[in-house]
């Protein structure tokens, strides 16, 4: 499903953030990506979603080499992913409902059907009764869950979560992990980055450990 072969990434003018990374993530697998701050976790996730392009090496997603993909086809590739960003990227000029409905609007989704889907997604993360509020009125953990709702609303086959439990206490992060495992059970492929070693110990999934830009098995 996701295959990295000898991928290197260097930002313009910088050092090599990722060095010779190779791995494969199978369909419906749930994988953790660990590493210290600055190890290159976000960079790796951005490479999968073609937000950044690799300096060398190839990346296959669903058998498609995404470093060769044309700009015009990029939007359609991205629709396969549910993205949870480290910096949330919520829009504070509109309601929670409007935030979650955005991915459906982008795919020209039928209006009544999308309202149903938005409510289902909000229900899943426990924000159903807040749909008219502005995301600014949400706590950190609630905003994190709103990001999840937006990422899952178009039922992606791959969920990429960048530190979804970032600065949350263990109770909250446990809740969020519960949500992720429910997706895992229905066959969604998940890649979740974290620097929280404690959380990794709790869940015995596969872990890709990044250290100084290299993968340590």
């Amino acid at each position: 499903m996701i295959q990295f072969s000898n991928v290197c990434k260097r930002y313009p003018g910088g050092i090599d953030v990722l060095k010779n990374i190779s791995f494969t993530i199978g369909e419906a697998e749930m994988v953790f990506l660990s590493g210290h701050s600055g190890a290159g976790k976000s960079t790796l996730l951005k490479l999968i979603a073609a937000i950044e392009r690799p300096s060398s090496g190839s990346i296959l997603v669903n058998g498609q080499n995404i470093s060769l993909i044309k700009d015009g086809a990029l939007p359609f590739l991205r629709r396969n992913f549910g993205l949870i960003f480290q910096d949330h990227k919520l829009l504070y000029d509109r309601s929670i409902f409007e935030n979650v409905v955005l991915p459906l609007k982008i795919c020209d989704f039928d209006h009544r059907e999308s309202a149903k889907r938005v409510r289902a997604a909000l229900d899943k993360v426990g924000l159903l009764n807040r749909e008219k509020a502005n995301p600014i009125a949400l706590s950190g953990g609630e905003q994190q869950r709103l990001c999840i709702a937006r990422a899952i609303v178009n039922r992606p086959s791959i969920l990429l979560a960048d530190e979804p439990t970032g600065n949350l206490d263990t109770e909250y992060s446990g809740e969020i992990m519960k949500i992720f495992r429910s997706f895992h059970q229905v066959g969604v492929t998940l890649v979740i980055s974290t620097h929280d070693e404690g959380m990794l110990g709790q869940f015995n999934g596969r872990v890709l450990a990044l250290k100084n830009g290299e993968l340590h098995p």
């Binding site: 979603a49 937000i51 015009g72 939007p75 359609f76 590739l77 991205r78 629709r79 992913f81 993205l83 960003f85 990227k89 829009l91 000029d93 955005l102 991915p103 982008i106 795919c107 937006r150």
Partner: peptide, 16 residues
């Protein structure tokens, strides 16, 4: 700006 950026990230076409 932010809306455009997010829309791009989650798969909006240029036409959209």
């Amino acid at each position: 700006r932010e809306e455009i950026e997010v829309s791009r990230l989650i798969g909006a076409t240029s036409a959209f």
